[in-house]
Design a protein around this nucleic acid. Structure first.
Lengths: 134, 134
DNA sequence: GTACATGCAAAAAGTTTGCCGACTC
DNA sequence: GAGTCGGCAAACTTTTTGCATGTAC
């Protein structure tokens, strides 16, 4: 599971990384903990938090913060964005191609050197749309 | 200070609203509390939180959540986005005209009915750029 | 063997809530 | 006067940290 150079490989760390990579539903730390415990029955929540932070710093995973929710983690580290369904709460990826020129536009508008941007869309997912209105 | 229809006008509530409206630095609840206390010396932090929530629901202010930080509040309720300087931490507004077509693009890409989007840019502000590097 | 990682439990940080007296309408 | 609101303090949720022990390299 190829952890970045300086990191030690421990059962806990590699299991946590694998779990985040295979989860496509953007789990919270607590959800990761629950899932990892199926394999490593005694991992502590503290270790999960510590490793999620380490892996985030190492660029192996990403952390996302949506409005008023606990942090979620994402094994997809390529640039992309998120949509959250306001009815069922699911969070899905949105291709990074959306808003490709945003960086230049924002740099021109603000004078900042823009390094990154994250977009959080909110709406109704196809399933909830079928079940009717907002 | 024109509070939406159903809300009662109390010294605490209107001071909190005024304070958020006049602050252009996106204060946290604790910062709002500190500032409001200059006028209403005994206002409690609980009241500040309650009123920020009420005013947010009433559409009088907005709440913003940036990566790994406590919630911040914004008296500007018209659509707009935010940039945060990764060196000095300041948060500034970015005009909503940026990314005007994002809603349609995201709707087409995901099948969601998109209701809203928020963009968080990260970079270096002009001042920090002058002082050199990342 | 040394530095780093883990488990555990306690603590911190941020936010919400229950209770009751006080104030707005 | 009825229903809201505010102060206070306790509770809750999420995340971080200290410490002693264990493990990877």
């Amino acid at each position: 599971m190829t952890v970045a150079t300086k990191l030690r490989t421990t059962v806990q760390r590699s299991t946590i990384l694998e779990e985040v990579r295979r989860s496509h539903d953007h789990p919270t730390a607590e959800e990761v903990h629950r899932r990892v415990r199926r394999t490593v029955s005694n991992v502590s929540l503290g270790t999960v938090y510590r490793n999620l932070a380490v892996l985030d710093r190492a660029g192996e995973i990403r952390q996302i913060h949506l409005m008023g929710e606990p942090a979620r983690f994402d094994g997809e580290v390529q640039p992309h964005h998120h949509v959250r369904c306001s009815r069922c709460g699911r969070v899905e990826d949105v291709a990074a191609s959306i808003g490709a020129r945003l960086t230049e536009e924002a740099a021109a508008a603000t004078g900042y050197r823009i390094d990154e941007h994250r977009i959080e869309f909110t709406g109704l997912c196809p399933t909830c749309r079928r079940r009717g209105g907002s």
